[in-house]
Design a protein around this nucleic acid. Structure first.
Length: 288
DNA sequence: GCGCAGGGGGTCG
DNA sequence: CGACCCCCTGCG
C-alpha cells in the first residue's frame, strides 16, 4: 500500500507523553519533534501541530482503522482523567503533568518478547536490542526512501539460534527469548486463547509459564498489549519509589512488600490502576 | 577525553 | 537471596 494520512483533534493525545512514558520501545523522536515508529506491518510518523495530530505512514490497512486500534482512540481519556483526578491531589498533579498519555494496543507477541528483554536492563539498550532483532529477523518496509523492519513473527524469530540472540546483545536473556518463542510456537501457551480469558488472574497464570516472564513483566504485557487489562498495576523500582513517597513513607523502600503496594493501588485506583500507574511513573521519572 | 566502577523496567535456581 | 550478560552513565 501507498503512504496514507490521517488527522484528528484530541485533547488527550501528546506524542511525547505517549511514546516516552515507558510502554513502548520502537518510537523515536525526529529532528522536527515528530515521532517515527514501526508497529505490526506499519511504519508511521506522528506529529502534533497546534491541536492537530497528523498521522502519516505506510500501513497494511486503512490508516484510520490502524490508528484507532493502536492508539486506543475510541476510549474517552478525558473521562478517565476526571475520575482519577478525584482520587487525590498526588494523582491529579501527575495527570496534569502527563495529560496526553494514552495506553497503546500493542501486539501481544512483540510485547512479551520486549518485556522479557527489559529485565534488569536499561531503556537505551532495550531499544537497540529490539531494533537489531527486527533488522535481522523481521521484514523490510520502505518508507520515505528509508528501510524499516517489522518485529519478527514467532515463526520468523524461531529461525534464531541461542547464539544468534547472544550475538545481538541479549546477554543472559537469550535462552529466555529462545524458550519462550518455542513455547508460543508450540502453543504450550496459546496467545489466541489468552485473548479470550476473562480474569486478569487467569491470564497472568498463563503468562507466568513463559521463560523470563515473572510478575512484573506479566503485568506490563497485560497492560500494554491488546490484552488491555487496565486494572493491573505493574510494580517496578520507580513505581515502588513513588508509592512509598506518597503513601507509605518507609525508611527503606526496598523492604516494602509488593502486596502492600498492590493493595493501596487497588483501593485507590480500582479498575483504572494501570492507567494511574502510567501517570505516576511518567511524572516521577521525567519530572519531580 | 579515557578508564573504571556502579547499576539497570527482574527472573531464576 | 545472589548471580546474571552487556553496556550505558557518571565521575575521577
Amino acid at each position: 500500500m501507498d503512504v496514507q494520512e490521517y488527522t484528528i483533534k484530541n485533547s488527550s493525545f501528546e506524542p511525547k507523553h505517549i511514546f516516552e512514558c515507558g510502554q513502548c520501545f520502537r518510537w523515536n523522536k525526529q529532528d522536527d519533534e515528530s515521532y517515527l515508529g514501526v508497529f505490526e506491518n506499519n511504519v508511521m510518523s506522528v506529529k502534533k501541530e497546534n491541536d492537530t495530530i497528523i498521522f502519516r505512514g505506510k500501513c497494511a490497512e486503512n490508516i484510520q482503522k490502524v490508528c484507532k486500534d493502536y492508539f486506543d482512540l475510541n476510549r474517552d481519556y478525558e473521562k478517565i482523567k476526571n475520575k482519577l483526578s478525584n482520587v487525590d491531589d498526588f494523582l491529579k498533579t501527575s495527570i496534569e503533568y502527563g495529560h496526553g498519555i494514552r495506553i497503546l494496543n500493542q501486539d501481544l507477541w512483540e510485547c512479551i518478547i520486549s518485556f522479557i528483554i527489559s529485565a534488569n536492563n536499561n531503556i537505551p539498550r532495550i531499544k537497540k536490542i529490539i531494533e537489531r532483532i527486527s533488522c535481522k529477523f523481521g521484514k523490510k518496509i520502505v518508507f520515505d526512501d528509508k528501510d524499516y523492519y517489522t518485529f519478527p513473527t514467532p515463526e520468523e524469530l524461531s529461525n534464531a539460534t541461542i547464539q544468534d540472540l547472544r550475538d545481538l546483545g541479549l546477554g543472559f536473556r537469550d535462552v529466555r527469548v529462545y524458550n519462550t518463542t518455542k513455547m508460543i510456537l508450540e502453543k504450550q501457551v496459546d496467545l489466541h486463547r489468552l485473548e479470550e480469558l476473562n480474569s486478569s488472574e487467569d491470564i497472568r497464570e498463563e503468562l507466568l509459564k513463559l521463560d523470563g516472564v515473572g510478575p512484573k513483566v506479566a503485568d506490563c504485557i497485560m497492560l500494554f498489549s491488546t490484552l488491555k487489562r487496565l486494572d493491573v498495576f505493574p510494580i517496578d523500582v520507580w513505581v515502588r519509589r513513588v508509592m512509598n513517597e506518597l503513601y507509605i513513607k518507609a525508611e527503606d523502600e526496598t523492604k516494602i512488600n509488593k502486596k502492600e503496594i498492590s493493595k493501596i493501588a487497588e483501593e485507590k485506583y480500582k479498575n483504572l490502576a494501570g492507567i494511574a500507574q502510567q501517570y505516576l511513573f511518567y511524572w516521577k521519572r521525567e519530572g519531580a
